[in-house]
């Protein structure tokens, strides 16, 4: 099978159905297209008719600087092995995207998960609002960039207190200042300089 001609075939299908903002070839077996939100359904439908029958993944990416969410649909055709990423940006305020259940029924749970983790609404999906993974979540959707799991964890779950001399590994560096220094250095490495 010649994958180059497969990539060309994909190009033709997508260019004939919608406007491509950006095209990124990733490898012989993978290509990414950035399209407009309104074109997504059309493109997915025509790809499905051409044999990209499997929805491999659906999720979102948060871009807080641009104030956008980016939805990702990954399709696969097993006979012409090319993965296609279709990406579309939507607004971060009141994000909403029509469901693709009529095209790919398998998307039902992916969409529910995206709603739970990012807060994106999927009108057309009968129960996207129900919680799937978490129970009684009481904060902003956790995969948004402005959610800080560490702060949440510190607030909600008490953590174990250890005395300063809890672990003594080597005699030389036993003094408390040296320990504190080491810990500080480790923290700096971990967080990238901020205290």
């Amino acid at each position: 099978m010649n994958s180059i001609s497969n990539l060309e075939a994909v190009d033709n299908i997508i260019n004939s159905t919608g406007k491509v903002i950006k095209k990124e070839p990733i490898s012989d077996f993978q290509v990414a297209y950035e399209v407009n939100k309104s074109d997504v359904h059309q493109i997915l439908t025509s790809l499905k008719l051409e044999g990209w029958k499997q929805l491999s993944y659906l999720s979102a990416v948060d871009w807080p600087e641009e104030n956008k969410f980016e939805l990702v649909y990954i399709l696969l055709n097993w006979d012409k092995p090319v993965y296609i990423q279709i990406r579309a940006k939507i607004d971060r305020e009141n994000p909403s995207m029509n469901s693709i259940i009529p095209i790919f029924p398998g998307a039902k749970y992916y969409e529910r998960e995206a709603h739970e983790f990012f807060g994106i609404a999927f009108p057309g999906n009968p129960d996207y609002k129900k919680q799937l993974i978490m129970e009684q979540w009481d904060d902003i959707p956790p995969l948004r960039k402005d959610f800080d799991p560490r702060a949440y964890s510190d607030r909600k779950y008490p953590s174990r207190e250890y005395p300063d001399n809890f672990s003594k590994k080597d005699k030389e560096n036993e003094s408390l200042e040296k320990q504190a220094k080491r810990r500080k250095r480790a923290r700096k490495l971990r967080t990238g300089g901020e205290e």
Binding site: D139, P142, P149, R150, S153, D154, Y157, P158, S159, R160
Partner: peptide, 19 residues
Amino acid sequence: PINGGIYHDSHPVINQLDQ
């Protein structure tokens, strides 16, 4: 369960079981 282990700062996982 002792102190959170590798998930000590993760949001759905508790840190200390004996609480």
